[in-house]
Write a protein that binds this DNA or RNA. Structure first.
Lengths: 119, 119
DNA sequence: TGAATTAATGAACATATATTCATTAATAAG
DNA sequence: CTTATTAATGAATATATGTTCATTAATTCA
């Protein structure tokens, strides 16, 4: 490990500890997928609106200004990642947030963004 | 707004409030970009290692098992998003975390993932 | 000055992904 | 039963993005 590198200012024991502390691939992949979900403006808008109230697909379509199909596809990925849940009433499907972490995540992200203007 | 929708179970006043509360495009785009940075396994690994210690590019290249160029490109994006900072010493560049939110974000994301197994 | 080392950069390529279009499924209403 | 409505799905396309390869820049050392 670290064959070519000249950075020897870290004890081997600590280095081994760091390497063994790397989360296993499955965890990293899940983290990755989780963050990817937030990395799309349409999904972010949907999540914002659902953080205010439950909405049906047609509502969300209007609100985010995107076709029904596009919104439905995005809701599917949000569902698959358990960020939203839905209940059906006749032919309409009402979506709502399923994860209390969404708000926290947004808060931290906004802090980071705001710091960009301060610095 | 909400022309075709039958979901009238929300007062117009509240709806207007919700719509006006939508963060402006610039903010959403920034949020989006911020989360995209975390949506890549190579970058996640880099961030993990940098959360333990500072490392030079060659180190990180070995640690994440990826070519120097790939790591350098990813470090560039991490730098552009102010998640890492660097200091130069001769020809080597040492990178370290620049954002105290990274740990928090990871924590919340891990909570979400773990809940997936409980439910 | 010239060779070696480390990192950064640019172009090309391959893959991933968001959107659109068209269709289907499911339910409600006439 | 037929039509209308709402949402979900699949295929196709266009765009975005990560990695590699090749090169360049900057610094150190002989």
């Amino acid at each position: 490990m670290l064959s070519k590198c000249k950075c020897k200012n870290i004890p081997k024991a600590k280095l081994a500890e760091i390497i063994s502390g790397l989360p296993e691939k499955a965890i990293i992949d899940q983290l990755c997928e989780f963050f990817k979900v937030f990395g799309d403006s349409t999904r972010l808008k949907i999540l914002y609106f659902l953080s205010c109230n439950e909405f049906c697909v047609a509502d969300l379509s209007d609100l985010v200004g995107m076709q029904q199909s596009a919104v439905s596809h995005q809701l599917q990925t949000l569902r698959l990642h358990r960020l939203v849940k839905c209940r059906k009433e006749g032919t309409t499907t009402y979506y709502s947030l399923n994860d209390n972490h969404v708000q926290q995540i947004f808060g931290i992200a906004l802090e980071h963004i705001n710091e960009g203007f301060v610095k």
